[in-house]
Design a protein around this nucleic acid. Sequence first.
RNA 1: UCCUCAGUAGCUCAAUGGCAGAGCAUCCGGCUGUUAACCGGAGGGUUGUAGGUUCGAGUCCUACCUGAGGAGCCA
Length: 441
Amino acid sequence: MPSPISTIAEIGKHEGQSVTIRGWLYNLRESGKLLFPQFRDGSGVIQGVVPKNAVSPEVFDAIKGLTQESSVIVEGKVRADKRAPGGYELDVANVQVLQRVPETDPYPITPKEHGVDFLMEHRHLWLRSQRQASILRVRAEIIRAARDFFDSNGFTLTDPPILTPAACEGTSTLFPVDYFEEQAYLTQSGQLYIEATAMALGKVYSFGPTFRAEKSKTRRHLTEFWMVEPEIAYGTLDDLMELAESLLTFLVKRCLERRRPDLATIGRDLAKLEKIDAPFPRITYDEAVHKLQEGHAQGKLENKFEWGGDLGSPDETYLSSLYDRPVMVHRYPASVKAFYMEPDPQHPELALCVDVLAPEGYGEIIGGSQRMASHDLLLQRIHEHNLPEEAFQWYLDLRKYGSVPHSGFGMGIERAVAWICGLEHVRETIPFPRMLNRLYP
RNA sequence: UCCUCAGUAGCUCAAUGGCAGAGCAUCCGGCUGUUAACCGGAGGGUUGUAGGUUCGAGUCCUACCUGAGGAGCCA
């Protein structure tokens, strides 16, 4: 075909010219001797117009006989049209059918509604729908923005291992794998390793998959998810909160700047995203408890929250509903947090940690802390938590050779995508979600 | 692991304990501006599985399987 190849997204640049589109049939409407095939190519959807008297009988019949998702190379002239949702239509001149989907086994996902189970079983095909493609583009944008953010702020990407030797935070949530003669586990977090690279390089981050064998069946959990984790030598809890705040602000602004049409396709309320800006409210755990008890007294929360417990999901939802931007809750009781967190010098029963709760009930998207700098106290905590000391020798070394205050957090990519896209469930934020009871496709 | 709900045509769903149906999809026919097009017709069923109650079970009971929502745990 002599016409230049164009994507549907960029077809406006060729208005009035003939172009070649390589894609799939999205839907076909007909009105007598007029055909309206809709084509998609991964960048967008465009409607073709095929009057019977304008093309050869072979071309007309070929398009008339097309089935949903048949692969086609289409040649036609680009024409601006007010009636077209994308602004342009294609006056089809020629078509080449690469593979026609047989009607004996039609494409299962129709333009009509489907249930979750059916769509998940057909995830490999569901990805072709407009909404899913838009979500994946936003995900890609968020990942790129996160990398841009850290790369341009003096952080060095250091990749931690995915195969790890020992259980760090309890074996029940680890996926075991055979490692020759030994038992290994898929990583739950790269944190301990990037604490080491931070001591070498100053400001570092990791970006990769993590695995948790939690038997969680909620809209916020996957067994395999991606996490971005910065770690800063000499960083304090305050530095960390500032970093979390500017990262989230940057991500939202980037998506509004570059992915507005996709967010519109997804149906996101953009006004809510426009409000996301620094500074984010910072409240202590004690203040959070007070607000939760107030909420209970006003009948807005079912259970009365008692000081000392970790925040439950309904508690997080309630707290985040009090603000129109992410809220940072800091200084939890050390007893409900991990062994490696630095105690607050003013209140040793509290940990220098922070959870960032996204608005609109999306819950914790970032969790982080200042790390324990004292070798002896860390060793004591390892014993208190019944962790194998020998497995942590290298981690203890970091406190023997030039220990410094340092801080870091982890942000779950899927939760961030779900929040920015306004999705009901994280399963739509990753091409092939891995969940309890779902390993296929 | 616990609580709640659901499972009927390829899909989404109806059907008082009494003939198993509709829309979409597929096929045939009609329509020159359709926007999840529309109009007419056709084919399409082991009602999740195994028992039980009943003259009679998609419907009631028991167990199991699968899925969904929530809790806990977490990012």
